[in-house]
Simulated scan of single mutants.
Amino acid sequence: MMGIEEIKRIIPHRPPMLLVDEVSELAHRRRLTGGLTVAGTGPMPISLLLESWGQAALVLIRHDRPMPDVLTDGVPVAGVFERIRYGRPVLPGEKVTHRVTMDRLIADTAFLRGDSVVGDEVVLTVGRLVGAMRSAESLRAAIAAGSAVTA
């Protein structure tokens, strides 16, 4: 349904940190199925597996409001990940499929959950992700002030 070029028009990530290369199902602001064929010479680091799932979630959140440039379109911020569980390592050449469900979207704050599978085997479970959009200016101001990002 959606390939890497269309994904790049929706989210700001670019290779080598673009970690979603296809979307096979997309139900507007409800759910997404997409994934990545893992490259490299060793198992995918668990931090990158979670990042890949998060990028799939971002495609779901922003598919109807593309944001390819963080300086003008806003910066996606993962505020909270809860109830994360990892299964076995994902190996090079394997296709990991992310399944993301959006529970709520309030303004620019989204509440999501889901999992990632290789074949029928669950390799990641995300109990909840709370993500938000922030302007580049608000993040710069928070960093300059040495404070947490709240606006």
Rank of each mutant, 00 (worst) to 15 (best):
K8Q: 15
R9D: 13
H13T: 08
P15G: 01
P15M: 07
P15T: 13
P16N: 08
P16H: 10
M17N: 05
L19E: 06
L19I: 10
L19D: 06
V20W: 03
V20C: 03
D21M: 07
E25N: 03
E25G: 00
E25H: 07
E25T: 09
L26M: 07
L26N: 05
A27S: 10
A27I: 15
R29Y: 07
R29G: 06
R30Q: 15
R30F: 05
R30V: 13
R30A: 12
R31K: 09
L32S: 06
G34L: 12
G35M: 12
G35Y: 13
G35V: 11
T37W: 04
T37H: 02
T37M: 03
T37R: 13
V38T: 06
A39K: 08
A39N: 04
A39T: 15
A39M: 11
G40C: 08
T41C: 01
T41D: 14
P43T: 14
M44L: 15
M44I: 09
M44Y: 07
M44P: 02
P45E: 13
I46W: 03
I46G: 00
S47P: 00
S47I: 11
L48A: 03
L48I: 04
L50E: 05
W53K: 01
W53L: 04
G54N: 08
A56Y: 10
A57L: 11
L60H: 06
R62F: 10
R65E: 15
R65H: 12
M67L: 13
T72G: 04
T72L: 06
T72P: 00
G74R: 07
G74N: 08
P76Y: 11
P76V: 15
V77P: 00
F81A: 09
Y86D: 02
R88W: 09
R88K: 09
P89W: 12
L91W: 11
P92D: 12
P92V: 14
G93T: 10
G93D: 11
E94R: 02
R99Y: 09
T101S: 06
M102I: 07
M102R: 06
D103R: 12
L105M: 14
A107E: 15
A107R: 14
D108V: 05
D108P: 00
D108A: 12
A110V: 14
G114A: 10
G114N: 10
S116E: 10
S116P: 02
V117S: 02
V117K: 05
G119Y: 12
D120P: 00
V123H: 04
L124W: 12
T125N: 04
T125K: 07
T125Q: 14
V126M: 10
V126G: 02
G127V: 11
G127T: 08
L129F: 11
L129R: 02
V130W: 04
A132V: 12
R134W: 07
R134A: 13
A136D: 10
E137I: 07
E137G: 01
S138H: 06
S138G: 02
L139A: 02
L139Q: 06
L139H: 03
A141K: 09
A142Y: 10
A142C: 06
A142W: 12
A142I: 13
I143M: 04
I143S: 03
I143C: 00
